[in-house]
Amino acid sequence: MTNHRIYTMRFASVYGLYIAKAEKKGRTKTEVDEIIRWLTGYSQEKVQMQVDKQTDFETFLREAPRLNPARALIKGIVCGVRVEDIEEPTMREIRYLDKLIDELAKGKAMEKILRM
């Protein structure tokens, strides 16, 4: 397994960047939180606990209570790479979340983002 730098980044710092990106485009922290909960199965309280504990991104995903099976429906390009072609599981999960936040920032409806 390749150890990417993002794996050791604190989830709290990436979370803050997700919120800033969404708010810059007129979206909300609440919507970011809903996306994270949908993807990972964390409750809002548990997301906040992970932020407060300064958990690294890899641990945040590894400890996710229930990764949403519908995440396999997430398709497209993030950082120049097609998410569905990423073989390394942890990086694929990170890019799924990146893609959902990108969709939010681009103004997509929450129902479409959450594959409803």
Rank of each mutant, 00 (worst) to 15 (best):
M1A: 13
T2N: 10
N3H: 12
N3G: 09
Y7F: 07
M9A: 07
M9S: 07
R10K: 15
R10Y: 03
A12V: 13
S13E: 13
V14R: 11
V14H: 01
Y15P: 05
Y15S: 02
Y18A: 10
Y18T: 05
I19D: 12
A20N: 13
K21H: 12
A22K: 03
A22C: 10
K24Q: 15
K24F: 12
K25H: 13
K25V: 04
G26T: 14
G26C: 11
K29E: 15
K29F: 11
T30C: 05
T30Y: 14
V32T: 09
V32D: 04
I35L: 07
I36P: 00
R37W: 01
R37G: 06
L39Q: 15
G41N: 04
S43G: 07
S43Y: 04
Q44M: 07
E45P: 02
E45V: 14
V47W: 03
Q48H: 09
M49Y: 05
Q50F: 10
D52A: 15
K53S: 06
Q54G: 15
D56L: 01
D56K: 08
D56Y: 00
D56P: 02
F57Q: 05
E58S: 12
T59Y: 08
L61K: 03
A64D: 04
L67S: 04
P69Q: 11
P69Y: 10
A70D: 14
A70T: 09
A70N: 12
A70V: 08
A70Y: 06
A72D: 13
K75Q: 14
G76L: 04
G76S: 01
G80Y: 08
R82N: 14
V83E: 03
D85V: 07
D85K: 12
E87I: 13
E88V: 09
P89G: 05
R92G: 00
E93R: 15
E93P: 03
I94K: 05
Y96T: 01
L97K: 06
K99L: 11
L100I: 00
L100G: 01
D102F: 00
D102C: 02
A105M: 05
K108L: 03
A109D: 07
E111I: 02
E111G: 05
K112W: 00
K112C: 01
I113R: 01
L114M: 04
L114Q: 00
M116Q: 11
M116G: 09
